[in-house]
Design a protein around this nucleic acid. Structure first.
Lengths: 345, 345
DNA sequence: TTGTATGCGTTATCAC
DNA sequence: GTGATAACGCATACAA
C-alpha cells in the first residue's frame, strides 16, 4: 500500500507544500491566495483525486448541502417529473437531494422527517398531500432552526413559516370543466380526490364553479369519491356507469385516475371520447402517448420543482423573510380524450 | 429563548442526569446500561425531541448511513420502481438514499460520482446503462475504500470488484420473440437498443437466437436501430412501415419504446395487434393500463432494487467476499398487444 | 499571504 | 455500569 487509504486536507497540503487552510481557502474560493499557489493546489487536488469530506465540513460549518425531498408516490409520474426539476437545480447549486418516498404512508412520513433532521438537512421540500399532525411540531422545529420548508404543490396554512408553491387547482378544474361545458356536455361527472374531514377540495370547487358561472346545475349523483390511482379511477367509473342516466363526460382528479377511467370505459364497451369524454389533470408524460391522448390541465411540474429548490436557497440567504405563496399558471392541453379535437382513427 | 437552539447529547445527558456516552450507548443499543437508566434516557430523548447528529456520528465512526443511487432516467417508470425497492429496504435498515438522476448525461454522471464520494457514501447503487471511462477509476477508488458498488441492472465486467444484479436479457428477448414466432408470425422486426461500438447487445442476441433455435431466418431489413424512449420507438416504427414488405410484429427494447411503436402504428392507420403485434420489455406499471395492454417481459424491478440494497449491506458486513453476479428470472406477461390473448373490443 | 489553535457533536478507549 | 478524554476532518478566528 503505497498511499494511505484516507486522503485528507493535510495530505494535499503536504503534497503541495502549503498549509491546510490554504487548501481549504482554495477549495472554497476564498480570497487572499496568490494565483500561483491556487493553481498549484488545484493541480495537486486533481492529481491525488482528493474529495473533501463534506461530513466534516458540514459539521464544522454548521451547514449542510443536503436537501430533503419527501414525496407521497414515486410511481405516479407527476412526482418524478417534479423531482427532476428539484434535482437539476440542486445540482447546479452544489446541493444533493435526499429522496424520501412515503407511499402515502403517514408512519413513513414521520420516520423520514426524523431521519432527515438527523442528517441536518439544509432545507426540506415536501410534496406530501395531507399534512400529518405529527409534522406540525417537527416542521416548527425545523423552521426554528432556520431550515426552510417548502411545500410543492402545497396549500398555504396561515401561521406556519412555510413557502408554498402551487397552481390554483380551483382555477385548473374550472378550466377543464369549462372546456367540457363549452363542448356542449350536459352530464359531466367528477371523480373527487380524497377529501379530509373538515377540509375543502379546490378541485371540486373549480368543477362546481364552472357549472355555476354558466348557470348550469350540478347533478349530485355525478360527483363520486375517488383517489389518485388508476384503480381509483376505474372503481369510480364503474360506479358512474351503473347509473340510470350515465355521464357524457368525466373529470378526473389527476391523469392517473383519468387513465383508470378510460380503461374502465373501454372495458365496458364505451368509446372515448365519442360516448364519454374524459379530462385529466397534471399532464404527465404518458398523457401525450395514451390512446386516446389525454386532454388535461398541465401543472408545470419541472418548473415547480426547480422553483422549490430556488426558494430553499432564497430562504437560506434571507431567513427572516415572511412566508410566501408562489403560484404557477395551469394550461389546458386539449387532446383527443375530450373530443375537443378530431384526430385520425 | 428558554432553550438553546441546538440540542446535543450533552443536553440530553444533563437532563437525564447521566453522562454523554451513556446516552450514546442507549441510542446505539450497546450493552452495559441498566434497564432503568435506559428507560430514563429514552424518555428524555423523546421529551426533548433530540435527534442525534448523523454528520458528527458518521465523521467519528468513519461510516455513514447514506447510499448513493445513480439512475439514467427518472422519467422512465422502470427506474422509479427500482428506486422504490432500494428505498424501502434502505429505510428498513436505517439508511438514506441520495438520488442522482443523470438524464443519460455522462458529464452529470461523473459530477455526481464525485459529489457522492464527498458525502462519504456507504455504498453505491448504479443503474447506469453504459459505464463511462472516467467511472472506472472512480469506482476502483470507491472499492479500495471499502465502499460496495452494485450495478442493477448491470453487466458483469471481469476484474472489477462490483456486484451485478440483473436478469438475463438474452433469455428475456428469446422468450418474447419466441412468443411471437409461436403465434405464427413470419416477419418479426426488432427495434434495437443503442449499441456501444465493440459491444454486443444481449437483447438482440436473444431475438436472433429465438429465430435460430426454430431454424428461422432473420430478415436484416427488419432489424433497425432505436433507443429507450417513446420517440425512439416511433421513429424506428416509421422506418419499418416504409418497407416494401412491412413486419407483422415488432419487438421493442423496452416498454417505453413499445408504446412509441404502438402510437406510431395507430397513427399510420394500423391496428395493434391485428395488423402488427408488439412486444415490450420491463413491465412498467402503465403496460397493464395501456390500450392495448402490453405484452411484455417482466424484470422484477422492485425486488431487484431491494436485493441491491441488501447486497450493499452484505458487502459492508463482509468486505472481502469476491464479486458476484445475481440473476433474477424474467417472466413473459402475455397481454393483448401481441394478439396472444383475445380481449374484448 | 500563510501558519497555529480551537471546536463542531459524536464515538471509542480508557480508568473508576 | 459509569465518567473523563482523545480523535474524526475540516473551518475559522487569530497571530505571524
Amino acid at each position: 500500500m503505497s498511499r494511505r487509504l484516507k486522503l485528507t486536507m493535510d495530505d494535499v497540503a503536504r503534497a503541495a507544500g502549503v498549509s491546510k487552510q490554504t487548501v481549504s481557502a482554495v477549495i472554497n474560493n476564498k480570497s487572499g491566495i496568490s494565483e500561483e499557489t491556487r493553481d498549484r493546489v488545484r493541480q495537486v487536488i486533481a492529481r491525488l483525486d482528493y474529495q473533501p469530506n463534506l461530513l466534516a465540513g458540514s459539521l464544522r460549518a454548521q451547514r449542510s448541502f443536503t436537501i430533503g425531498v419527501v414525496i407521497p408516490s414515486i410511481t405516479n409520474p407527476f412526482y418524478p417529473e417534479l423531482v427532476r426539476g428539484i434535482e437539476d437545480q440542486a445540482q447546479r447549486d452544489g446541493y444533493s437531494v435526499f429522496l424520501c418516498n412515503t407511499d402515502e404512508n403517514q408512519e413513513k412520513e414521520v420516520k423520514y422527517l426524523h431521519l432527515l433532521r438527523r442528517h441536518r438537512i439544509a432545507g426540506l421540500i415536501a410534496a406530501t398531500i395531507k399534512v400529518h399532525p405529527a409534522w406540525t411540531e417537527a416542521l416548527r422545529r425545523l423552521a426554528a432552526q432556520g431550515v426552510p420548508v417548502i411545500f410543492v404543490p402545497g396549500t398555504y396554512r396561515p401561521g406556519e413559516q412555510v413557502v408554498c408553491i402551487s397552481v390554483d387547482d380551483e382555477e385548473g378544474f374550472l378550466t377543464g370543466t369549462s372546456h367540457l361545458l363549452d363542448l356542449g356536455h350536459q352530464r359531466i361527472a367528477m371523480i373527487c380526490p380524497p377529501i379530509e374531514p373538515g377540509q375543502q377540495s379546490p378541485r371540486l370547487a373549480g368543477f362546481l364553479r364552472a357549472h355555476f358561472e354558466r348557470g348550469r346545475k350540478v347533478l349530485p349523483e355525478l360527483i363520486v369519491p375517488g383517489g389518485w390511482h388508476v384503480t381509483d379511477g376505474q372503481a369510480a367509473t364503474a360506479q358512474l356507469m351503473q347509473l340510470a342516466r350515465t355521464p357524457t363526460a368525466i373529470v378526473a382528479p389527476n391523469d392517473m385516475a383519468a387513465i383508470g377511467a378510460i380503461t374502465k370505459l373501454k372495458e365496458l364497451g364505451h368509446r372515448v371520447p365519442e360516448d364519454v369524454a374524459v379530462v385529466g389533470y397534471d399532464n404527465i408524460a404518458i398523457a401525450e402517448w395514451y390512446d386516446p391522448p389525454l386532454t388535461t390541465v398541465e401543472q408545470p411540474h419541472y418548473d415547480m420543482g426547480k422553483r422549490a429548490m430556488q426558494a430553499v436557497l432564497e430562504r437560506l440567504a434571507k431567513p427572516h423573510e415572511p412566508a410566501e405563496m408562489i403560484k404557477f399558471a395551469t394550461t389546458l392541453i386539449v387532446r383527443r380524450s375530450s373530443g375537443g379535437v378530431r384526430g385520425k382513427l
